Simulated scan of single mutants.
Amino acid sequence: MKRDGLVGCLALYAALYGAYGCISPILPNVLAAGGLPPERIAILLAAATLVRLVAGPLAGRSADRHAATRPILAAACGLTALAVLGHLPARGFWPFLAVGLAYAVTTAPLAPLADVLGLAAARGGAAFPYGWVRGAGSAAFIAGVGAAGWLVQGFGLAAGLVAGAVLFAAAGAAALAGRDPGLARDRPVAAPGIGFADVLRLPAFRRTVLVAALVIGAHAMHDAFAMILWREAGIGAGAAGLLWAEAVAAEVFVFLIAGPPLLARIGLPGGLAVAAGAGALRWAVQAETVALPWLAAIQSLHGLSFALLHLACLGLIERTVPPAARATALTLYGTVGLGLAGAAATLASGPLYSAFHGRGFWAMAVLSLAALPLVPRLRPPSEGTTSA
């Protein structure tokens, strides 16, 4: 039973994040090739972000209310595959806006609902560490990016879209095929009394989301401007790509190997503190230098500032949120907490980078450090082993 749960989750995460790897790098190029100027692409992507903030929590609440995480996830994956293919005939702003908003609605709950299934199958680490399946997802994302590049180079943008659609459909099939004894055991058939307000009234959940919003939000300037900063410093595309790959490799290493035993030793709140400190150090160094050896040294901190943070946050949510409200909590965490924080920090990053250039990363370091005062209030009087 444990083996079946692990294999099913690995199939789900590999297909889902492989699909994201195929689609994410090429989607802006698809929009540009369809006749959209940069300002229209920005409007479309911003509108999609706003739609996700609403669609994700609504899907999570429905999954909890009807105890239907798997069917809703499978349906969302299938509809996402259709939305991806809908980009093929689209031309001009309004058709792309329609299909883009459909894509935003259907993708909003995918990762959080997959995490609901992953946590349930892992059974608090008794069956397997959740980090194994999430790390497999990150590795699949890298493979998807590489596959998309090869397909686009050989067959055009449409081939990358088709590959992504096939993988989303495969993720839906994996969601339906899996079995979660832990989910069936822990959750009632319906939970009409537990809603958004009930989840948001949980102090530990609010603090966890706020810590995550601060630490993940601090990545915004890096995601938006690091490649520009490095190029202006004379770092070639090949070296910049290797720096980015190093960060993702560190993420996979923490998810698969280092994260679970580290959290078992230092505790979930300790993991948040380490993640916040690692992020602050990373951004402080980036604010002061673009020397390649220093950049190579700090990229590995991404494994702590992102992967360890995610493991600790999900462990805290699993520990503090009732199972019948877990899909609601994870969609709030993913789409509102992280999505809204990331959007706000990205908007702030533009003026900061324009005014201070690389020194603007000091603001991101301060943002990470602002999470530290919240951590002690997440530590119970006698903390046992973690469930991440």
Rank of each mutant, 00 (worst) to 15 (best):
T320D: 11
A343M: 02
E318H: 09
A345Y: 06
T328P: 07
G342Q: 12
L314T: 04
T328Y: 10
A307H: 05
G277P: 01
G236D: 15
A245D: 02
G267D: 12
P323D: 03
A329E: 01
A329S: 14
Q286H: 10
A224M: 06
F253D: 00
F225E: 12
G277L: 02
A341G: 03
R265N: 05
G259Q: 05
I235H: 05
A297C: 01
G259D: 06
E246C: 12
L256H: 01
G303I: 09
F253M: 06
M221V: 07
L330E: 10
E232L: 06
G337T: 10
S305Y: 00
G236W: 14
L338P: 01
T346R: 04
P269M: 05
F225S: 09
P260Y: 05
D223Q: 12
A273H: 00
L330R: 07
A307W: 12
V274D: 00
P269K: 10
A341T: 07
A307T: 13
V248W: 01
G241I: 05
L281F: 00
I228M: 11
S305L: 00
R231E: 07
A240T: 10
V274Q: 00
G277W: 02
W244R: 05
A287T: 04
V290L: 15
V290K: 09
E251Y: 14
V285S: 07
Q299E: 11
A220M: 03
I298S: 07
L311C: 12
A297M: 03
G277V: 04
G241Y: 00
L272A: 11
F225V: 12
L301H: 10
G238N: 09
C313I: 05
F225D: 02
G277Y: 07
L242S: 08
G238T: 01
G334F: 05
A226P: 04
A224L: 12
I257K: 03
A280E: 11
L308T: 06
L314R: 02
L338W: 13
V248F: 00
L347T: 08
G279V: 13
G267E: 04
V290F: 08
A239P: 08
L311A: 00
P269L: 08
L242Y: 09
G271Y: 10
A341K: 09
T328L: 14
A245P: 08
W283E: 00
L262M: 09
A324G: 13
L272Q: 13
L308V: 12
L263Q: 02
A250D: 02
W244Y: 09
V336I: 15
V252L: 04
A273W: 02
F306Y: 15
G342S: 14
L316P: 02
R231D: 08
L295R: 11
H302Q: 04
E251G: 15
Q299F: 04
L243P: 06
A233S: 15
R319A: 15
A327E: 12
A264C: 03
L309P: 09
A240N: 08
T320W: 11
L316I: 14
T328Q: 03
V290R: 08
H222K: 03
V252A: 13
Q299N: 01
L314G: 06
